Simulated scan of single mutants.
Amino acid sequence: MTSVSAPARLAPPDRRPSIPGRRRPSRPTPRAVRTWLAFLLLAGPNVALLLVFVYRPLLQSFYYSTLQWNMGSPTARSVGLGNYVEWFQDPTTADVMVTTGVFTVATVGGSLVLGLGLALLLNRRLKGRGFARAVAFAPYVLSGVAVGMLWLFIFDPRYGLLSAGLRVIGLESPDWYTTSPWALVMIIVVYLWKNVGYVALIYLAGLQAVPLELKQAAALDGASSARTFRSIVLPLLAPTTFFLTVTTLLSSLQSFDIIQAMTKGGPLGSTTTLMYQIYEEGFVTGRAGYASAVATILFLLLLVVTVVQLRFVEKKVHYA
């Protein structure tokens, strides 16, 4: 009698409850790997340069601002927030901030108004328009020190070109170098002359982007040129104006070269801005820790101004 073997028992199915929301980790696809490698190849060097030459010095400046350290000294003493307290209690701080505010408002507002007017002029169909555009933009690419040295001869109260022109109409030239209000006016004029070409170039690009159909429709409706400019062109230039406001404001707050070449912060500190005070404290008096504290204050001021512009001003800008 033959025996029949029992059938093999099958393993029961896995009835363990699955955890909701949990997925098996998926391996990256070759395409994703190539994308990340391309990103690291292209953005990696830029990120490395930013970390080494921007963010690392910034963090070091924060650290130095808590030290009482003279330039070149091998030792330093921690003072915490002492440098900041000293800056806020310094009687010259108010004058520096007022000078910085006047210089910034005058240069930013003047650059926008004069740049827009120059752009409107250069946007017309005139002979030699290309050459005029190049001449208007040329001062922006020149060295600030060279521009300052050139204008020193123009503003010379005895032999300068400006004094000669004023004598022709019966006026005496003020002493631009040693008179407190006129020295700041001189710096503002030179800064506007150097940077108005940049603003005009950006505005010119914005003007050429305005649709011609809108202007023609406004003309058919009987709108004057001034009304067309006020109601159509200016609103369409709002993104350009916002961009120029941000860039010119940051540039004005960090202006140094023209002041150094023409007045060196004088007379009696009447042209000493916050940026120039950093240079004086760090490289003239040698107080590197105090200069780092002033630089940190300037950085925070730039950060606040930029955030306010991006948070509140940009809301009123319509991108069409």
Rank of each mutant, 00 (worst) to 15 (best):
R158I: 05
L250I: 14
L118G: 07
S143Y: 07
Q89N: 14
M97W: 12
A43H: 02
V317A: 05
I188Q: 01
S78T: 10
T29I: 02
T240N: 08
V141Q: 07
A6D: 12
G80F: 04
V141A: 15
A38V: 10
R129M: 14
G144T: 02
L122G: 13
S252Y: 03
I187Q: 01
A218V: 05
G110A: 09
I232D: 08
G117Q: 10
L10V: 14
G286A: 09
L234C: 04
D14L: 09
P211I: 04
Q68G: 02
A76Q: 03
V52A: 14
G80H: 08
S231V: 13
L192M: 01
T272M: 09
G115Q: 02
Y55R: 04
V54F: 11
N70G: 07
R15G: 01
L250R: 07
Y63G: 09
V284K: 07
R56I: 06
L207H: 05
F153W: 10
V196F: 10
T100A: 11
R287Y: 09
Y198T: 11
T263M: 01
S224W: 09
L40K: 02
T228G: 10
W176T: 06
P91F: 11
L162T: 10
A200Y: 03
R22V: 13
V305L: 15
Y140S: 03
T296E: 08
L171V: 08
G286N: 02
L268V: 15
L162R: 07
T273L: 10
I259H: 12
L253A: 02
L302C: 15
T2C: 03
T93G: 02
V317D: 06
G115F: 02
D90P: 05
T263H: 09
A183K: 02
R24A: 03
G44D: 12
P25T: 01
A226R: 15
L120M: 14
G21V: 01
T272G: 00
S173R: 09
V313K: 06
G130F: 04
T29M: 00
R27N: 00
V105F: 05
A32T: 05
